[in-house]
Design a protein around this nucleic acid. Structure first.
Length: 307
DNA sequence: ACTATGTCCTGCGAGC
DNA sequence: TGCTCGCAGGACATAG
């Protein structure tokens, strides 16, 4: 299940290998679930566009695309001229959400963003067009370099979309400072585990890294977020950043069927201290690891070390 | 505004 | 061996 470290690994791998390449054509499967934007919107945005960069926002892989289709460029220029002749837009109203920093750096009216969310079982594979197309392939992007980028997702929890502006909610957990972290979590009446999974607060934390960071911080996943002291929030923030960074360094966790864009597995699952270890001894105190359900998710913790 | 719960989807493994 | 059943969970819808 790809969370922040897995998505980061995939995005970095893709950035290295497809930046500058051009999408020549797009094939989309018949199943409607994986498409968040319409098939026509996606095809139109992707075909004849150049991949300027690939990066990660939360659990999303973002392709910044520049249209290189002649008629599209003309149309965009026409739109731009029309926009220029209109009165200048007033500055954003108070409370109106600003666009994320990235969309300001990657400005230009002809930049669009192709967003891939892998869900549980989604994979992006860069491969030879002659290789067998696996079952549950929902999209194939033919690249000018002769390769294909395929989106495969058996469980169909993944989503593909195209947007003009990146207005992501939530804060990147690797960038958040302590003051912001405390403000975000101290008012929540929900179990800390649920709060960590809430993408509107932090973006990118999933079940594995929520459990692992809570173990390292010595906090019980059931604990109400509002009852956690500042000192323990400080510990949690550091634990979370530590575990995410270690996982990125290890190429992510391969549980179920995660592989990166090369088909390589990550290694961080070998370092899980609680996730998937129900009944096994705590690495610190030997107490059997417990598994409970919070917000419909299995949560693993040491009943002695975490409170 | 918050919080909690149900739903989607398929593969896999446990159990008989 | 072959079958059924339940579980895995991110994001969203819905209800309270």
């Amino acid at each position: 299940m790809p969370e922040l470290p897995e998505v980061e690994t995939i995005a970095r791998g893709l950035a290295q290998r497809v930046t500058g390449d051009v999408i020549e054509s797009v094939w989309l499967g018949q199943k409607p679930e994986p498409l968040k934007s319409s098939a026509r919107q996606i095809s139109c945005a992707l075909e004849h566009s150049q991949i300027l960069s690939v990066h990660r926002i939360g659990k999303h892989i973002v392709f910044d695309l520049k249209d290189v289709q002649p008629q599209c460029v003309e149309r965009l220029q026409a739109t731009a001229r029309a926009a220029d002749s209109k009165p200048k837009p007033t500055r954003p109203r108070r409370g109106e959400r600003r666009h994320a920093a990235r969309s300001q750096t990657q400005t230009g009216r002809n930049v669009t963003h192709f967003i891939v969310h892998l869900g549980m079982t989604g994979r992006l594979q860069l491969c030879d067009p002659r290789s067998e197309v696996p079952k549950h392939t929902h999209a194939i992007l033919k690249l000018a370099s002769g390769r294909e980028l395929r989106f495969i997702d058996p469980r169909r929890f993944g989503r593909l979309s195209v947007v003009r502006d990146l207005d992501a909610t939530g804060v990147e957990p690797l960038e958040i400072d302590l003051a912001r972290f405390v403000v975000l979590f101290r008012s929540r009446e929900t179990p800390i585990k649920s709060a960590l999974l809430n993408q509107k607060l932090l973006r990118g934390v999933g079940n594995i890294y929520a459990d692992e960071s809570l173990f390292r911080a010595g906090i019980c996943p059931r604990r109400r977020s509002s009852t956690i002291t500042r000192d323990r929030f400080a510990k949690l923030r550091l634990s979370l950043q530590e575990v995410l960074n270690e996982a990125i360094a290890a190429g992510g966790s391969s549980v179920s069927d995660y592989v990166d864009s090369d088909g390589e597995e990550g290694f961080f699952q070998l370092q899980h201290r609680v996730y998937g270890r129900e009944g096994e001894p705590c690495l610190v105190c030997n107490t059997p690891i417990k598994r409970i359900v919070i917000a419909g998710r299995s949560s693993h913790y040491c009943p002695k070390c975490q409170h």
